[in-house]
Design a protein around this nucleic acid. Structure first.
Length: 960
RNA sequence: GCCGGUGUGGCGAAAUGGCAGACGCACAGGACUUAAAAUCCUGGGACCGUAAAAAGUCGUGUCGGUUCGAGUCCGACCACCGGCACCA
């Protein structure tokens, strides 16, 4: 253990936390707000800085991924990111930026609900308890959050706006020509006005064939058709589709929440089950979600994960005529150049043509295979991937280029959910098709010649030269793969056999859950005159839609969501019924960063002014919005969130969903940027002391509360940053905390008089005064601290530190910034006289990292100045709050040395270090190097071929 | 299999192509102390030397290349971590 306490952090930290709270020191101000004169922000920027007509200070929006307040409390991983952002928030505040640094709770979620099912305790209660714990723990770390902007996704005043955004999605459609979301009213209007849209209208399958026919419909039928049509266009829509159903959780899950055939939460098995569900049309935004990644400053690996998830691939659709049938099978292929090698076709077992084309002889085999496949969980389907299975349907299709009849099979290696659910099999040049063809003795032909003639063409999938690909109309032979793709696609298009297309892996977002603890949908179901069910949005005035009170939070026995138990809530007086699904947890986290901007606004999810100030960039808004903003505008005003810090676990869930919602809000004119998070950094994992991931079962979990009691928040913060680069995974080492704790102790002793410290400790031993903050007044400033001018050497030390810390903070290199401060303190400890001005600047550097001890010493420095040095200049006396003190500037002129130590190398190996004047010319340096006694033995007897002189750096003598 | 990241002392790490190992941990020796804790000082990559030094040689996952000079740039490979994975 640490033994004697290094300094009284147990008194200092609560004292300053309370002070910041009471003064609302870190409150950020919205446009139009008047800042009280005594607030440190007003002292720095003026009380009317945010008033209309004033140029407000440049903003800096720095955001943490808000936590899910679990019952387990904070772990040491949480404060890692929070400390990094807090240091930058405090640093930017010192640099004069108006910092928005908020915190809140992503509090809907399964654990509170499962606890409710077990114990009957309302999830609200569990959530409130957990939030209280998290808040206490986070506050004890002294972060400079603006708590007036705290959000809680489960607060009706918050989720009212989540529901409001859902209504925006519901009442919008995607216009492919404009490539953007539009209000659904435009589509309704266009139906009757715009001829091309009329066609679209007419061609919808569920409608009568002609516009005239449409007009002849009775009003009720027309209204029904209209509802159906619009329902099919909305960004939020209902579909009956196979979804992931998790029996144990009693809910459906999104693709993103299913990992290896199991639920991401709990690891329970999931099965495919057709159910009526709400979906969000994220696929319409696939291209923008992909291409806009190029405009934001995110880690490449994270962008790559999103790109993979979106999974864009360019290729062609090709239609194959089914023999003896009117029907066609359309396939998607990225290799149209290999069309001549397509010797069979495969449909996914779920493909809708399967039953239609299967011949009577094959019917039993096909039925059996289909039954087998549905029984398999997805896990089994992928685990058994090595061995291909499938059945012949008995039907044939015609290859459009070879005109040959090719057999149509079904196999579960073709997925119903990707492309068209059907493939043309080219066993010569596709690994899977090759395996399948080998197993079932299907013909394999070569159509690509590998560049290296020694390479076996069987199953060769790379690019090469096309062979065996000629018919009466077209020949691809001799072309490269790329050329052949272009040529055959053009030919297919000209003949109506297909066309160029782009396919995405991204699926629409399954947006409903059979849960209690989530946002209810602002939707009711009604029946039209012919008794058909249709959905209708509630008006904005009906928001928030609160969940009903329940005694039992389980789903109903017949599989209805828990909300269905509240019959008096579900059934409305007019005969309509409420939607009983709830939204997924992601709903609240999709837009919370916008609510922070104007967290208490009862009239809008965010006011236009607040959104403009915090998210827009003055520079960015002047630029044409249709062009992408440059990834990093060197100046200090950036669009969107300036910095977002969090773990990689949200790479394809939260971060993709939030970008999607943001784009819809952008299209509809509610936000001013295309992207929400301009720069994003992933913090690395903190591993256990044993180098393994921390987990209860390993017993290597470190509880932050224990560390705080032993070493204090400042040491904890410092250690989290000193461990290594933020983005890296690194093992925890409590001994390392002691190291930075000792450093803070040295800082303390640099400032505090030893004699007074002894008095303080004696006073503290009395039981009744132990926790008394007034005791801190006993402590006096070290007598070696004097109001004297700094020596050149002292200035050099200080300015080298300012330079290093400033540059390292700009580059988020917290660990090396801390080591620079350690070097400073080690050096300053040796000074007999310590100039106040130097120590004062040092405290400003230290403050972002260790704010409590810095504030305490700052206060001591200034109160002591007022008592003892009343004649001091105002510059060194300025006692404005440390949190808003101006960041010191370094003067490079002070860092210049008059003599330098210059290494002398012979053939690149270090042989000596010589002293030289800073302005020594090359001839002088060369002479000095040649004269070096230590280098001489390596030069003597050899000829000097050349001498490399890097001014102020190095001399290298090359001999031969 | 594909994509991304990382390999440097006993450990966490640091190094615009220019003195490898700053800073810290752990360790060892010393000072202070009745003693301990705390604090302060000193030491340290390996090898070879030596009474102790000095000098020297090797050294940033492996092999090769570019360069006067490579932890850093290029090529091939190996190991570990993370993600994706029958995506046509």
């Amino acid at each position: 253990m640490s033994g004697r306490r290094q300094y009284p952090f147990h008194l200092i930290e609560p004292k300053w936390q309370q002070h910041w709270d009471e003064q609302q020191t870190f409150r950020a101000w919205n446009p139009g707000e008047v800042v009280p004169e005594n607030h440190p922000f007003a002292q720095r920027h003026g009380g009317d800085a945010m008033a209309a007509g004033h140029q407000p200070p440049p903003k800096y929006y720095i955001l943490d991924m808000f936590p899910y307040p679990s019952g387990a409390g904070l772990h040491v991983g949480h404060p890692e990111g929070y400390t990094a952002t807090d240091i930058l928030a405090r640093y930017q505040r010192a640099r004069g930026r108006h910092v928005l640094h908020p915190m809140g709770w992503d509090a809907f979620g399964l654990p509170a609900e499962q606890y409710a099912i077990k114990t009957g305790q309302h999830p609200r209660k569990t959530t409130e308890t957990n939030i209280a714990t998290f808040k206490r723990q986070i506050k004890s770390l002294g972060f400079s959050y603006d708590w007036t902007r705290e959000v809680d996704t489960t607060d009706p005043e918050y989720f009212k706006w989540s529901q409001w955004i859902f209504l925006k999605l519901y009442n919008s459609y995607f216009d492919p020509e404009l490539n953007k979301a539009q209000p659904i009213e435009l589509l309704e209007d266009a139906l009757s006005e715009n001829p091309t849209r009329k066609n679209e209208w007419k061609n919808n399958a569920f409608l009568v064939g002609t516009h005239e026919g449409w007009l002849s419909l009775k009003e009720t039928a027309r209204s029904q058709a209209r509802n159906l049509f619009l329902a099919g266009k909305r960004l939020a829509f209902v579909t009956e589709a196979p979804v992931w159903w998790c029996e144990q959780l009693g809910t459906v899950l999104a693709n993103e929440e299913v990992v290896d055939g199991k639920s991401e939460v709990g690891g329970f098995p999931v099965v495919r089950k057709p159910m009526r569900q709400w979906m969000l049309r994220i696929t319409a935004f696939a291209e923008r979600l992909l291409s806009d990644l190029d405009t934001i400053d995110w880690p490449e690996s994270l962008k790559e994960m999103q790109r993979n998830w979106i999974g864009r691939s360019e290729g062609a659709e090709v239609h194959f005529q089914i023999s003896n049938s009117e029907s066609q099978i359309t396939v998607f292929t990225t290799r149209p150049d290999t069309l001549f090698g397509a010797t069979y076709m495969v449909l996914a077992p779920e493909h809708k043509l399967v039953d239609q084309i299967t011949t009577p002889e094959q019917r039993d085999a096909v039925a059996k295979y289909k039954a087998d496949v549905t029984k398999k969980s997805d896990l089994e389907r992928t685990e058994l991937a090595k061995d291909k299975t499938g059945v012949f349907t008995g039907a044939y299709a015609i290859n459009p280029v070879t005109k040959q009849q090719v057999p149509i099979w079904i196999a579960d290696y073709v997925l119903a959910s990707y492309g068209t659910g059907a493939i043309m099999a080219v066993p010569g040049h596709d690994t899977r098709d090759f395996e399948f063809a080998e197993k079932f003795n299907l013909p394999i032909v070569q159509v690509v010649q590998p560049p290296d003639s020694k390479t076996d063409w069987h199953g060769f999938t790379d690019d090469g030269t096309v062979v065996n690909s000629t018919n009466a109309e077209i020949s691809l032979d001799g072309l490269t793969t790329a050329e052949a793709k272009t040529k055959i696609t053009a030919w297919l298009e000209s003949r109506g056999f297909g066309k160029k297309t782009i396919n995405y892996k991204l699926r629409d977002w399954l947006f409903s859950r059979q849960r209690y603890w989530g946002e209810p949908f602002p939707i009711v179901w009604k029946r039209d005159a012919s008794g058909n069910l249709y959905h209708e949005a509630l008006p904005e005035s009906a928001l928030p839609v609160l969940p009903p009170k329940l005694d039992d939070y389980k789903p109903t026995p017949d599989g209805q969501p828990p909300l269905a138990r509240a019959q008096d809530w579900v059934n409305l007086p007019d005969g309509s019924t409420r939607e009983t699904n709830t939204m997924p947890q992601w709903a609240g986290s999709c837009w919370y960063y916008l609510r922070y901007l104007d967290a208490k606004n009862p009239n809008a999810f965010v006011s236009k002014d607040a959104e403009n100030y915090w998210m827009g960039s003055r520079r960015g808004n002047e630029a044409d919005k249709s062009t992408n903003p440059p990834p990093h505008v060197g100046g200090y005003e950036t669009p969107g969130v300036d910095l977002y810090v969090g773990g990689t676990e949200h790479a394809v869930l939260h971060l993709l969903y939030a970008r999607f919602w943001h784009k819809v809000l952008f299209d509809l004119g509610y936000v001013s940027t295309r992207e929400p998070f301009f720069k994003l950094v992933n913090q690395g994992l903190i591993l256990g002391e044993d180098g393994q991931k921390m987990s209860k079962s390993r017993g290597n979990v470190v509880n932050p509360d224990d560390i705080l009691v032993e070493y204090g928040a400042d040491a904890f913060r410092l250690y989290e940053m000193f461990m290594g680069p933020l983005e890296m995974s690194k093992p925890w080492n409590t001994k390392g905390v002691e190291g930075v704790y000792r450093f803070l102790g040295r800082v303390w002793r640099l400032f505090v008089d030893e004699q007074s410290e002894t008095e303080f400790e004696q006073a503290e031993t009395t039981a009744e005064t132990q926790r008394c903050r007034e005791l801190l007044d006993i402590l006096k400033l070290n007598l070696t601290i004097k109001d004297v001018p700094a020596t050149p050497a002292q200035l050099k030390t200080l300015h080298a530190t300012i330079k290093k810390v400033t540059e390292d903070l700009d580059g988020m290199r917290f660990n090396t910034a801390i080591s620079a401060m350690m070097v400073f303190v080690n050096e300053a400890m040796t000074w007999e006289t310590k100039p106040i001005s130097v120590l004062r600047d040092f405290l400003i550097l230290l403050a972002p990292f260790a704010p409590h001890v810095a504030e305490e010493l700052w206060a001591k420095l200034h109160s002591s100045l007022i008592t003892h040095h009343s004649s001091l200049s105002s510059a060194s006396l300025s006692s404005a709050s440390l949190s808003y003190a101006e960041w010191p500037k370094f003067d490079s002129a002070l860092l210049v040395e008059d003599t330098l130590e210059i290494p002398v190398q012979v053939n690149g190996k270090l042989r000596d270090v010589i002293k030289a004047a800073i302005d020594a010319d090359n001839a002088t340096l060369e002479a000095a190097a040649k004269a070096s006694e230590k280098a001489k033995p390596f030069i003597d007897g050899k000829t000097i071929k050349k001498i490399i002189i890097v001014p102020k750096k190095l001399i290298n003598i090359v001999v031969g």
